[in-house]
Design a protein around this nucleic acid. Structure first.
Length: 507
RNA sequence: GCCGCGUUGGUCAAGGGGUUAAGACGCCUCCCUUUCACGGAGGAAUCACGGGUUCGAUUCCCGUACGUGGUACCA
């Protein structure tokens, strides 16, 4: 039956690309790869009032970063070009007209004011939002109530109009959702949605059906928020005579706020301190910049892993997956029905796991900007790679490398002297001076540590009481790899400089 | 309000008529480590509620509650 799987992601280029959006891309991508199919990116830019400069390129950038590049897109057109709905504008009207000819749609000349008036007029406590439907369309200015001559006259006069679907009064629209099973809706409860806007552009409802048909889409994945309008689309497929070619539908669960309730939004990220967009988004109008997962220090493979586990699981105990593994294992049967609350702590854990698996040279390159942002210059890539290896297990984000390893390249600016002062003595001070004087060559960490311990014993001091002071002198705080590994890394000269500096401060 | 969809620990979740109801994140305790982290060993914590069906329901059915989405010339 399914000759060749074709799926599509159809974003509206209006701003930052949300977690949920990328998750939809991911599931499309995985499904396509699993079935050796084609993943199409179609830009749904039919709302000209919401055009945002740069938003389309931004989507490509995000997908590229995530490694989810489409097989066909506006940048890489296949056999079904164009891939931007704004460029497909001339294609939609004929279908809307066909629907009118079949009495499945009609012209409506109502102005926004008249629509508003209708809603006010029919508004009751029981029905707070009256619809343009079988109950009200008889009172409106449309081709159902006007004579053909009047309609023609209005059109000839250039009166703005839309084309609306005429929802039947007593039908049950039933379809099978790949994730949820049988779904049914009563048509009397669905309103006469606009199909073609007065500017000649289709609405989503018409465009999605026409384009999915023309682009031979076999499986249509979208967020759960589309479920209520599914009957419109099903009916359109039927009315247009394409029922046998209708794609299989799958409505994906929503990604919800970690606290409270509702869909995860950009605001929640700002409020709770975590990113929501894949990559940094700069609003060209307001100039506002919203940090993305990439800038926050996430590895793309971790981001993918996080998204995959939000609503899907392999049914095994495996938690960490590569994109390749996901392509192989993904199946719609294992996609959840219920929405999932986003857990940033777990997201960071995934990233930490992927950092441990990542190549050190790559981590060095990716974390370099964070050192630079802290004003720490790292000239030697080899050294940085070594540093990365030393601290990687304590890093959850790429930015953590700068926190955890800057002292390997620049002496600490502040020192946690409170950890040393209370127990500081002149004897300890003397010990460190003597120790430095004896430091002649850079030995292996273990050898240096043994020498350190031996000297301490000679001086009648406990090694354990001297380790923390030494660490504070070199690192500035109570963290980091083994002290002698650090000395081995920064060298004798730098070690002495740092020790002397703190010795002076303690004197 | 109406309609759709959903509901297993705090979170992600496995399981789907009989189980001690997996595992992971987070939290707590201990071990390792004279730091932090990693790692290891433990621990607290769950089937929304009410009716059925059944010898037996977390699992099937029906209600209720709650959540969520929709109810635009936005997608």
């Amino acid at each position: 039956m399914e000759n060749h799987v074709r799926v599509r992601f159809a974003p509206s280029p209006t701003g930052g690309l949300h977690l949920g959006g990328v998750r939809t891309v991911l599931f499309n991508y995985l499904f396509a790869k699993k079935h050796k199919g084609t993943f199409v990116l179609r830009v749904e830019d039919t709302d000209q009032t919401r055009f945002v400069e740069g938003a389309e390129q931004y989507i490509f950038d995000c997908l590229n970063w995530a490694g989810l590049n489409p097989d066909e897109s506006p940048l890489n057109p296949g056999a079904y070009a164009p891939y931007r709905q704004s460029e497909r504008k001339p294609m939609y009207r004929q279908y809307a007209e066909q629907l009118i000819a079949q009495c499945n749609a009609y012209y409506a000349f109502d102005t926004p004011e008249e629509l508003e008036q209708m809603r006010e007029q029919y508004k009751t406590p029981e029905n707070p939002s009256p619809q343009y439907d079988h109950r009200t369309r008889g009172q409106m200015r449309n081709s159902l109530n006007l004579s053909p001559a009047e309609v023609q006259e209005l059109i000839d006069a250039g009166t703005p109009y839309v084309i609306r679907i005429k929802m039947p009064e007593n039908e049950t629209v039933q379809f099978t959702d790949l994730i949820r099973g049988s779904i049914s809706n009563e048509t009397q409860l669905v309103d006469d949605k606009v199909l073609l806007k007065s500017d000649g552009m289709p609405t989503y409802h018409l465009a999605v059906v026409v384009d999915d048909y023309l682009m031979k889409i076999t499986h249509a994945f979208r967020g759960e928020e589309w479920l209520p309008s599914a009957p419109i689309h099903i009916l359109l497929w039927k009315y247009l005579g394409w029922e046998n070619e209708m794609p299989h539908w799958a409505h994906l669960p929503l990604i919800l706020k970690p606290d409270g309730n509702g869909k995860l939004s950009k605001r929640d990220g700002e409020r709770l301190g975590f990113p929501v967009f894949a990559m940094e988004w700069k609003d060209p109008k307001t100039g506002d910049i919203v940090e993305g997962f990439k800038e926050k220090g996430f590895l793309p493979e971790a981001f993918i892993n996080i998204l995959a586990m939000l609503g899907w699981n392999a049914g095994t105990e495996q938690e960490i997956f590569s994109l390749e593994e996901l392509c192989d294992l993904f199946s719609l049967e294992r996609v959840h029905k219920g929405g999932a609350k986003f857990d940033y702590e777990k997201a960071k854990w995934y990233n930490q796991q992927h950092i441990q698996r990542a190549d050190n040279a790559r981590l060095a390159q990716l974390s370099k900007p964070y050192f630079e942002a802290k004003g720490v210059t790292v000239a030697d890539d080899q050294k940085l790679e070594q540093a990365v290896a030393m601290v990687k297990e304590r890093c959850h984000l790429l930015s953590d490398f700068a926190e955890q390893a800057s002292f390997l390249f620049a002496a600490p600016v502040t020192h946690d002297l409170d950890a040393v002062k209370p127990k500081w003595t002149a004897e300890k001070s003397a010990f460190f001076t003597k120790w430095m004087d004896g430091l002649a060559q850079l030995d292996e960490p273990a050898a240096m540590e043994a020498a350190f311990g031996a000297l301490a014993a000679e001086e009648g001091l406990k090694k354990g009481e001297l380790m923390m002071p030494l660490r504070i002198m070199l690192v500035g705080g109570k963290f980091g790899p083994g002290v002698f590994d650090i000395i081995h890394f920064i060298g004798l000269e730098e070690t002495k400089t740092r020790v002397q500096h703190v010795l002076a401060a303690l004197a």
